[in-house]
């Protein structure tokens, strides 16, 4: 069992964002906005078993949705950003840093 940390990164601007992990809603917020100083809007941490996890992110305000399988191995990091009209997901075994 590790921690799945999902960072909402660039491109969010007063958006509704809903995140489900393995079908369970772990985040649902309105007015999600990227802080320009950091390139980060919000961070969500949830416990996840090692193995494959299904991460579903929807942004109804932009009619965007994306579902990805993420390999969870210990602490795992997912970055989501709105880019070129779509949702993009990055997965990393090390935390993303901001500044």
């Amino acid at each position: 069992m590790g921690t799945l940390r999902i960072d909402l990164q660039d491109g969010f601007d007063n958006d509704d964002v809903c995140i489900k992990v393995n079908g369970r809603e772990v985040y649902h917020h309105r007015d999600v906005t990227t802080k320009l100083l950091l390139g980060l809007a919000d961070t969500i941490e949830t416990k996840a078993e090692d193995g494959s996890a299904v991460v579903e992110i929807t942004v109804p305000t932009r009619k965007l949705s994306r579902t990805d399988k993420v390999d969870v191995k210990g602490d795992t990091y997912v970055g989501a950003c709105v880019q070129r009209g779509g949702l993009r997901l990055l997965v990393s075994s090390t935390p993303f840093g901001y500044g």
């Binding site: 960072d7 906005t33 320009l36 100083l37 950091l38 961070t43 840093g97 901001y98 500044g99």
Partner: peptide, 18 residues
Amino acid sequence: EKSGVGGVMFDAAAAYGG
């Protein structure tokens, strides 16, 4: 306060995270 942040130029508008 956000542990992912390694440094911040905090002196800006609140809307930008300052």
